[in-house]
Design a protein around this nucleic acid. Structure first.
Length: 472
DNA sequence: CGTGTCACG
DNA sequence: ACGTACGTGACACGC
């Protein structure tokens, strides 16, 4: 399954019968021949896929990264993450009361009761009963998403209430109630499943529950993180996250001197970008300028458009265009790199990552311009996002080896794309922090340093940065 | 099961 | 004139 994934990660079907069809051109029979036919196919496939991996120079990625990662992920899933069930239930009750109060307010303002969770019913109330202006439409009717409600907030106080209602409803259904329902009664912990063959870029995904999307951006949601705790009172949680890994990878693959210098000098990258884009000194950069520059940096990684940027930071499209033009004028190496990646993708039909992960981009050849543009943005984004996935996967394999070798009691329990979480005895924390930081920062040698921040604490909310002594 | 919405990196 | 930021998963609704 994993070999087939590396050969073509965008292929939607990963069942044995799909892989047989794709690589052997064979249709698996049903009935009494099914089992021996499967055995035969697996044998054929193991040789064939091994040959194909060698041909694509993906054998190291397969044997040195993805295969050893299987055991790492299995152990993480088995260990699970402890949660405070009582606290989860208390939060649920509190959210339930807030939701009821808000619903009452919303019904009063609407002049009737209806299902607030139904976009169809909500649209009718907002745009037909209350006659609010229609901002945008979906395939099936009126859009009522957060951007629309934000705009409506000026016209009617119901909009803000609905936004608040949605926020609480999300927290209750997906997080407090949703997580509580998935606590394993035997272990008292949450045991996610990490999927290794799902994403087109090489990232992992997490399901049942998804522990890669626990709230953090809004303070209220962030409190959910308090329920994620160590397994015993002698333990702490330790989190280790890569600082700006995607932009560092961009600096490496593009060779852009301004970007490389910024990272080598340990500069704040968003401030540096603001200084470049707005033509001021770093010390003259305001909060607002830095915020916009941060959005530009994200946009660069995504394969930006002036439209997407303007929507993100709420400036006019021509203003966004100016930021982008300024960016490419100052980071000319990035511009050259992006043009090269897209051109090579068109020539070869695929893009690759640092460790030779591959993604085919048939969208590049679509007659539809929108689809083609999408393909071009994918061509820019995938080598960055996918290389970041390569880096952390290799680090996970190396960390596990060292932890086993040195007899650590601590356990790696979660991966959140650029971050690893450990459940560790308090008296191991300093040694673990040193090991994890060293493994993550030295996993590959790039032309800019990789920097990892380490935090520790009594739960996932209250982790605080710790500085390591004497490790340089 | 498709759609809309929204949580994360 | 049109339609667009990259990658996921879960929930609720409604067919």
């Amino acid at each position: 399954m994993i070999a087939a994934y590396l050969l073509n990660p965008a292929s939607p079907n990963r069942e044995l019968k799909d892989i047989c069809l794709e690589h052997l051109g064979a249709v698996l029979p049903g009935g009494k021949e099914e089992l021996p036919a499967k055995a035969h196919c697996i044998m054929q496939l193991s040789r064939l896929l091994d040959e194909k991996l060698k041909l694509f120079e993906q054998d190291r990625l397969f044997y040195d990264v993805e295969l050893p990662l299987v055991q790492v992920l299995a152990d993480m899933e088995t260990e699970g993450v402890a949660v405070d069930k009582n606290q989860l239930e208390a939060m649920s009750l509190q959210l339930g009361r807030s939701i009821e109060n808000l619903a009452g307010e919303i019904y009063r303002l609407a002049g009737q009761e209806f299902n607030i969770n139904s976009p169809k019913q909500l649209g009718k109330i907002l745009f037909e009963e209350l006659k609010l202006p229609v901002i945008k439409k979906t395939k099936t009717g009126y859009s009522t998403d957060a951007a629309v409600l934000d705009e409506l907030a000026a016209a009617h106080e119901i909009a803000a209430k609905i936004l608040e209602y949605r926020q609480f409803m999300k927290l209750k259904s997906t997080y407090t109630d949703g997580l509580a329902a998935l606590i394993n009664p035997g272990t008292g912990r949450l045991h996610t499943t990490f999927h290794q063959t799902v994403t087109a870029t090489g990232r992992l995904s997490s399901a049942e529950p998804n522990l890669q999307n626990i709230p953090i951006r809004l303070e209220f949601g962030r409190l959910i993180r308090k329920v994620f705790i160590p397994r015993s009172k002698e333990h702490l949680l330790l989190s280790a996250d890569y600082s700006q890994i995607e932009l560092r990878i961009l600096a490496h693959v593009s060779g852009d001197p301004v970007l490389i210098n910024a990272f080598r000098n340990g500069e704040d990258i968003h401030t540096r970008t603001a200084a470049e884009v707005f033509g001021v000194l770093p010390e003259e950069v305001t909060r607002e300028m830095r915020g916009k520059a941060k959005a530009v940096n994200f946009g660069i990684v995504y394969g930006l458009s002036d439209y997407g940027l303007s929507k993100d930071i709420k400036v006019t499209r021509s203003e966004a265009r100016r930021y982008i033009d300024n960016y490419f004028a100052r980071y000319a190496g990035v511009k050259t790199y992006i043009d090269r990646v897209v051109r090579e993708a068109r020539e070869k039909g695929y893009v690759t990552t640092l460790l030779n992960r591959r993604r085919y981009l048939p969208d590049l050849f679509s007659p539809n311009r929108t689809v083609r543009n999408f393909g071009e943005r994918t061509a820019m984004n995938t080598p960055i996002q996918g290389s970041a996935a390569d880096v952390i996967k290799l680090a996970m394999v190396n960390i596990r080896r060292e932890m086993v070798e040195h007899g650590f009691k601590a356990k790696m329990i979660l991966q959140v794309h650029d971050e690893l979480i450990f459940d560790s005895p308090a008296d191991e924390i300093d040694r673990l922090a040193e090991l994890v930081k060293r493994c993550m920062e030295n996993v590959l040698v790039l032309n800019v340093p990789l920097v990892v921040d380490i935090k520790a604490g009594p739960n996932w909310y209250d982790v605080k940065k710790i500085e390591l002594l004497g490790s340089f």
